[in-house]
Amino acid sequence: MISIKNLQKIFKSGTTQVQAVDDVNLNIEKGEIYGVIGYSGAGKSTFIRLLNRLEDPTSGEIVIDGEDIASLKAGRLRKARQEIGMVFQHFNLLWSRTVRENIAFPLEIAGTPKKERQERVDELIKLVGLAGREDAYPSQLSGGQKQRVGIARALANRPKVLLCDEATSALDPETTDQILDLLVDINEKLDLTIILITHEMHVIRKISHRVAVMEEGKVVEEGDVLDVFLHPKEKVTKRFVEQIMGDQDQDEAVETILAQYQTGQVVRLHFVGEKTNQALISEVSREFPSVSFNILQGKITQTSKGAYGTLYVHMDGTEEDINKAIEYISETSVQVEVNHHVS
C-alpha cells in the first residue's frame, strides 16, 4: 500500500543544514494501523507532512497505492491529496462554521454536488458519534467532540490513507481512549490504512499493529508492537516501553523488597498472549514442592496484538532445585530472566 524509500528532508537556513528526516525506509500494508513514535525533535511530524506533500522531500520516494506522490506536479498532487486524510493535534476547525459545515468543507472544495455532499456528511456524523450536534459550533464542543469533527472532515473524500499527527495529545486520558476506539472502529469498518504520529506509548500500545521508533530523523527500530514491547533494542525504545510497563519503578521496588531475603534468586517472567492468564506459579509449585515461590510484583498490559506481562518472583531452595524450576518454566514458552542472586 505505502512504500517509502530513502526519504530525506533537509531544512536550510543560511549556511546551516538540519536533516529532519534521514534516509527513512518503510513499508505499510493496506488496512494497517501503523504507529510512528518519537520524542520532540525526532522528525516524526516532518515525516508525516512529507507523506501528503505539505512538505516537499529533499530526496526519496513515497509510493502510495502505486503512485509516487513525491514526484507529482501541482494538478495531480491536488487530486492525490484528496485520497490522504489528515487529523491534527489542535483540530484546525473553522470556528465560524457548524459541525455539518466543517465536515462538508473539503467536499465543497472538491466540487461534490450538494445532495451528495449532504448525504456524505450525514453518514460521517453518524460514523463518528456526533448525531444531535450537527448545528453546533466548535466553541460549543468538548475537545473530544472537536476531534471527532476533525476525523469526519478528514474522511469526507473517502481517503485511502488517514494521517493522524498527535491526534490525541490535546485530550485527557479518558477522551484519548474514546478517540482511539473510534479510530479502531473506522479502521475495521472502512479497511482504512491509518498512520499515527505520537510521543505517547499508550497510543501505540492500544491500537497500532506495527510501530517505527524515530530518533534524530532516523527510524532506529521497527516491528510488530508486541515484539517491540518484548524485545526493545534501542535505548529510546526502552524508555518508551517503560512508560507503560514501569520497569524502572519495578526494579527499585524489587530492590527494596529484596532486603528481607537472605537466600534464593529473583527472576523476572515475561508472559505473552494466552500465557498471561494461566496459573503458572501454582503449577510450578506442585511440580517442585521443595522450592518456595513469593510473588513480589507484576503487571499485565494489553496491546493490539495480545497481552504482555511481567512478574517478579523470589524463588528459595537449593540451587539445583531452583535451576530445575527455571528450566521447567522456560519450556512453557514463558521467558525467564534471572535478575538477582540473593545468596
Rank of each mutant, 00 (worst) to 15 (best):
E216Q: 14
G217T: 03
Q8L: 11
F293D: 01
S330E: 09
E83G: 01
K299M: 03
H231V: 13
T303D: 09
G217F: 00
N277G: 12
E283R: 05
N294H: 15
D181K: 10
L7Y: 07
A279N: 11
T303S: 13
A259I: 14
F105W: 10
A136E: 10
T303N: 05
V228I: 15
T198N: 02
V128A: 00
Q260F: 09
F88L: 02
P232R: 02
E274S: 12
V121Q: 01
G85Y: 01
E116W: 05
T310W: 10
T175G: 11
G246M: 09
K305Y: 02
H231K: 15
Q8W: 09
N277T: 05
T276Q: 10
Q262S: 15
N157H: 03
S59K: 13
K275W: 01
N157P: 06
L50Q: 02
A110H: 04
V338E: 15
L162W: 00
T176Q: 08
E83L: 01
F271N: 00
T318S: 15
R120Y: 03
L7I: 08
T175A: 12
D247Y: 15
L180S: 09
A104R: 03
Y261V: 01
L280W: 03
K9P: 07
E55L: 06
L192P: 06
E61K: 00
S208W: 00
E216T: 04
Q140S: 13
R158T: 15
G132E: 06
I62Q: 01
M1V: 05
L130M: 06
V219C: 01
L183I: 10
D227Q: 05
L192E: 06
L180P: 07
E331M: 14
D165G: 01
V203W: 05
A80N: 07
T332L: 09
E108F: 12
T16G: 10
E242W: 14
Q145E: 15
E200W: 14
K115F: 12
D316Y: 00
L7F: 05
N6I: 05
H199N: 11
Q145D: 11
L311Q: 13
L51S: 07
V63R: 14
A212I: 08
H270Q: 11
I28V: 15
K73Q: 15
K44W: 01
L258S: 06
I322N: 03
K73D: 15
Q278T: 15
A70F: 01
H231P: 09
H341Y: 10
I69A: 07
V225W: 01
L296Q: 04
